[in-house]
């Protein structure tokens, strides 16, 4: 589950000056033809670096994303929900595994990425720094956070890097279960008893602001380079993703009689664009830099999992085994 709004490396104008112009031209021609780049291909350093960064953030978002919903894994009501939530949270861990694998093909090891996550050096999606207070919060996440992620991931699956595309295709197929399951849960709460309904509405109220943050700052204020678009690293702008999400899901939320806590939210019939209260980007920055309600807990859990698992990994490590970068 990842909504974009990636933190890319600041690029220097000279970044491409050192690259071999002939190889660079071949590389760009391949992308222009619509052919994917594979791990053994020559690629500019900048492309490699930005991709590692993006895929790594995406992978972290999956394994951290398993935690807010995991909050309810032992409490899901009834067999059907219990099994589904177990499978759903498991999928998030699985997605993390797939994405780390894709990033590994670019030359950064998974263990290094996990270390960088725990030390705070690399980021993950902001939204998972918010708590899941009730069962309804976990339903909101399953439906709408996953819906937002799908918008971004479907766009990215058409990007230029083969291993990332392959991972995303598999992930998107699994997300369709998440989306339907989440929607199913929300429908049951919203059309259920008064108590269930109130629970659901309260969750929507809590999660709306983080949901609007999910796609990252507006394109007006977020600088992403034209070159990342040309190289098909970044496939859709933050605003495009947010608009697409609103277009697809606001009507579905409203039809359940739920309200969205933004009085300005409406579709401008002339422009076809959704209008809304500008999200608080100061809060977004604060939370991404560590000062959100759950940042500390999320990283502490990951750290404890690493530390408690260390003796297991050490025991399994045969002294002669050697790490090899995966092929695809």
């Amino acid at each position: 589950m990842y909504g974009g709004g990636n933190v890319f490396e600041t690029m220097k104008a000279t970044a491409l000056a050192d690259e071999d112009p002939v190889k660079l031209a071949e590389f760009e021609a391949r992308i222009d033809r619509g052919e994917k780049i594979e791990p053994t291909d020559w690629m500019p350093q900048l492309y490699r670096k930005q991709l590692i960064r993006m895929i790594e953030q995406h992978a972290h978002s999956e394994i951290i994303g398993a935690l807010p919903e995991g909050t309810w894994i032992t409490r899901a009501p009834g067999f059907k929900r219990k099994l589904a939530l177990m499978a759903k949270v498991q999928d998030e861990v699985g997605h993390g595994q797939l994405l780390y694998s894709a990033a590994e093909t670019l030359g950064k090891s998974r263990e290094q990425m996990i270390q960088d996550l725990i030390s705070g050096k690399s980021k993950y999606s902001n939204i998972f720094n918010y708590p899941a207070f009730t069962w309804a919060d976990s339903c909101f996440i399953s439906w709408l956070v996953d819906a937002g992620a799908i918008v971004n991931q479907v766009a990215n699956s058409k990007g230029s890097y083969g291993p990332y595309c392959r991972a995303l295709e598999r992930i998107c197929a699994e997300e369709s279960f998440h989306l339907k399951y989440g929607h199913h849960c929300v429908i049951h709460l919203a059309t259920g008893t008064k108590k269930q309904r109130e629970m659901m509405q309260a969750a929507v109220n809590r999660w709306w602001a983080p949901m609007m943050h999910f796609f990252g700052p507006s394109d007006k204020i977020s600088v992403h380079s034209e070159i990342l678009m040309r190289w098909k690293v970044k496939m859709a702008s933050n605003d495009e993703c947010r608009q697409q999400f609103l277009d697809m899901y606001v009507p579905k939320i409203w039809e359940l009689g739920l309200t969205i806590p933004d009085e300005k939210l409406k579709k401008n019939q002339e422009t076809g664009q959704w209008e809304f209260t500008e999200p608080d980007w100061e809060e977004f920055k604060r939370v991404i830099n560590g000062d959100g309600p759950c940042n500390k807990e999320r990283l502490a859990v990951r750290r404890i999992a690493e530390e408690r698992g260390r003796w297991v990994r050490q025991a399994l490590l045969a002294p002669k085994s050697k790490y090899v970068t995966p092929l695809a």
Binding site: S109, E111, Q112, Q115, R310, R313, L317, S321, V324
Partner: peptide, 8 residues
């Protein structure tokens, strides 16, 4: 780093 081998 406690890295295992990878398998396809």
């Amino acid at each position: 780093l406690d890295q295992f081998e990878t398998y396809q």
